[in-house]
Amino acid sequence: MSIKNEYMLDIKSLRAGIAEREILKGINLTINPGEVHAVMGPNGSGKSTLAQVLAGNPAYEVLGGSATYNGEELLVLEPEVRAQKGIFLAFQYPVEIPGVTNAYFLRSAYNEIRKARGEEEIDPLDFLDLIEERMKLVEMDSSMLNRSVNAGFSGGEKKRNEILQMAVLQPKLAILDETDSGLDIDALRIVAGGVNALRRPDNATIVVTHYQRLLNYIVPDFVHVLANGRIVRSGGKELALELEERGYDWLLDAA
């Protein structure tokens, strides 16, 4: 017996790169609903490339292999279609958009996703209620709604804003790209708290990180180590602790 949608995400021999340089050299990874996967690795290993390719950044080129999302070929879809189908990327470097308020941006995104699913646009006042409730999750002040998207935000504010977007858009598959980088311990706790509050049995999370410290707060079910564009080791959460103790070199040597 075969079930078509066996995995939420099924990546097979994925190769991808940028500007004719191959970065991902054959990734295999499967993710089920309810799971949290950590993707770790040294700088330049391809962690961020994997996140960007899954979200559909046109700057990256897919060179081979496949990725299916709920049984559907993912890599041919436009980024906005992926988002409408429930994929969310929390950016390592959130983009500043002066002139567009956070509130307008969030409501546009929320409504576009609803429209793509054949649902009605939300009433602006109802949306305000929704967003104010979600802002509590990441301890954001409502004044941030009237500021331009990420413009003049501190590093911590930008990352919290990413998690706020995630809380509003309620993705099925969230990919957090180095969300911990540049965060102090308080901001890290707030961001991780937000992510944990959004965990449900029917959604999954990929946490891309260099360091183990975020994983103290967002506890993964699986840890994968990426090196030179390949997954060189997979294990449980104890693997992250081992990496924290021993660094990456012993795995690079083994690879």
Binding site: G56, N57, P58, E80, F88, V95, E112, I113, L169
Partner: peptide, 15 residues
Amino acid sequence: DSTALFYLKSRGIGP
């Protein structure tokens, strides 16, 4: 700006 365009698209907003 292509980076800003991708950011908006990644949130479900069409081109």
